[in-house]
Design a protein around this nucleic acid. Structure first.
Lengths: 341, 341
DNA sequence: CCGAGTGGTGCAAACGATTGCACACAAAAC
DNA sequence: GTTTTGTGTGCAATCGTTTGCACCACTCGG
């Protein structure tokens, strides 16, 4: 019932009547071992499908060459965008021969701290993280960096750390979306957004505002709501649409919120997109499940994940300099569907 | 720039003028060390926040106590149900002090094999897996078991291996759903399902059929279609609804398919649920994003993940016997929404 | 025919922990 | 005062690798 014995260098050495050192060197194809022996040993190893014990390797090399294991912190796994990013991370890491350790912070600061410690002790070579909503202290991140564990942020960026990061082009995404709404004839565009202490909240809002300005429309405070869940959208939208000077379009910072607005409007008897245009942000599964299908800004999570791995492995393998933060921006794309006229 | 030196037992020993063995024993609170020394050492360790090197621990203990790391194989990460299961696994594993290594097979047999090998070499203590659709050989799983790595299957079960598993109650779920449709007056219920070489395909189909029989309805072959994607549903549904003896309800094995049927029907001018009832299976994000919202069988992925971890840790820690397969069934629940009358 | 040079190997320490065993030194027993 | 018992420590081997260094046996030049 015990795990059977796995073939080690010692076994090979014994069976071939050489020393362990010779085996080790032969398997590294070191020229200091005679060609004959080398090939003999390599073939023997191949035939008995020897595989080096990673644990032992890691122990010996912990200082020199780090473990090929990336820690990934996700605020919430059951979430379209985050699972897309995770998928991108997994695929890219796999290609480069890395494995990923995954943990979810559940949006809790203390869980995030615990996960960081756990990852550190599990000797990950670096961490890719989108921080929890309620994280406002950053000691745990600083400590990691100080201990030589490179960090790459995605989506939710730590505002005070000058860390490497990959984000989507929130500003341009919002700008393009709102410009499109204007182009299609919308003149009073409402904004459903998140608090501005997150980068993405700020940037999307700025994109929205600038689109108005560039098109000669005036910014109207009453059309801006802090609202980023479906439930909130279903609450707020009826009030919004009962205004005497009601909006003719709604731009929401995520698809769930947009969908909430969509159904609230339909429920009140509005026709979408004839009476009201709606545009979301993400392009998640719901965007094609709703009726009519949602016009939205595609956030390309897979790409984001891929880039994050690119940066992290660069940092780990030394092709990127640890000192300076690498910042990448993934382009967004407007996907036009049925909720805009 | 090099990772700073981390405190080891050797350091503590040197600084306190004792041997490493004494430190080790003191930290294990062994009574063979005098109380005075023990406390002195423990306090010193605490103050300098010493943490044992897991790699070294693992190397030493690899035979006795295995690494607390679980490998998880997911066919596809960007998928509501699988991410729900993964979330359940992560949460449960975290509670028990395990970490998870995650990889996606992308439904490819050869990737699945590679992942198994990689997990094995990374010394996971066990693997939780839902197999790829095109996996029909099972040597890689058998080898793992033979090498002492316990396996737990979820959702997609290996048919030839008598392995531990956790599945949802597909049969009862389908039976309840179809019974409900009948109860609400439906008499000709179409079935959109998957191939029967997957357990879940077979079980749901049997639930469907038995619900008909139990309610005195006859089974009609022409109402059964192999169809389990949205695109297929959008193709097939128009044909179905143009039959002269058309169905008055559709039961689909997943929500995407149900949504495809829903919109195809709406597009043809049918009213749902007045003219046609529709019921899905999963209760995913789309089920509340569509209009009207989908009646469906909740599959409780989180629970499934939790149970899988329960079994695996039982196997690892010896509270469950390795020899016999542990099989758990998670109950489903019918969620009634707007697509049924 | 002897010394230097070279090519091929092995010894042993190291990575950071655990643990059986031996040993030193005390106090208690005789 | 010697033997016994017991208590607290340390030595050293072990897990499976890697690698600096020593060493041996050649060959070749002088």
């Amino acid at each position: 019932m015990n795990p059977p014995h796995v073939l080690t260098m010692k076994d090979i050495a014994r069976m071939l009547g050489v020393s362990v050192a010779t085996v080790s060197r032969a398997l590294q194809d070191s020229p200091s071992i005679s060609k004959k022996r080398r090939e003999e040993i390599q073939q023997f190893a191949r035939e008995h499908n020897y595989f080096p014990n990673v644990i032992a390797e890691q122990l010996r090399n912990s200082r020199r060459s780090p473990v090929k294991m990336i820690g990934v912190i996700v605020p919430e796994l059951v979430h379209y965008y985050f699972s897309a990013v995770l998928s991108g991370i997994e695929a890219a890491a796999d290609l480069k021969g890395y494995r990923i350790l995954v943990a979810q912070s559940k949006e809790q600061y203390d869980r995030e701290v615990k996960i960081c410690e756990s990852f550190y002790h599990n000797k990950v070579c670096g961490i890719i993280v989108s921080q929890a909503k309620d994280t406002v202290q950053y000691e745990h991140f600083k400590k990691l960096e100080a201990d030589g564990v490179p960090l790459v942020f995605y989506d939710r960026i730590c505002p005070v750390l000058n860390a490497s990061r990959v984000v989507v082009d929130d500003y341009m995404g919002a700008l393009k979306a709102v410009s499109y709404l204007i182009e299609r004839g919308c003149r009073r565009i409402a904004y459903y957004g998140t608090s501005h202490n997150m980068e993405i909240g700020k940037n999307r809002f700025n994109g929205y505002k600038d689109a108005l300005y560039k098109n000669g429309l005036k910014f109207d405070e009453s059309l801006v709501k802090m609202c980023d869940t479906r439930a909130e959208a279903e609450n707020i939208t009826p009030q919004m649409l009962r205004l005497e000077n009601r909006p003719d379009a709604i731009f929401a910072v995520n698809d769930e919120t947009a969908i909430g607005a969509l159904y609230a409007a339909k429920h009140m008897g509005f026709n979408v997109p004839e009476d009201l245009s709606i545009c979301g942000f993400t392009n998640d599964y719901g965007a094609t499940a709703c009726d009519p299908q949602l016009t939205t800004v595609e956030q390309r999570g897979i790409e984001v994940g891929r880039e994050a791995v690119e940066i992290l492995t660069g940092l780990v393998e030394g092709t990127l300099q640890r000192g300076k933060a690498e910042k990448r921006i993934v382009k967004t794309r407007l996907v036009v569907r049925g909720t805009t006229r």
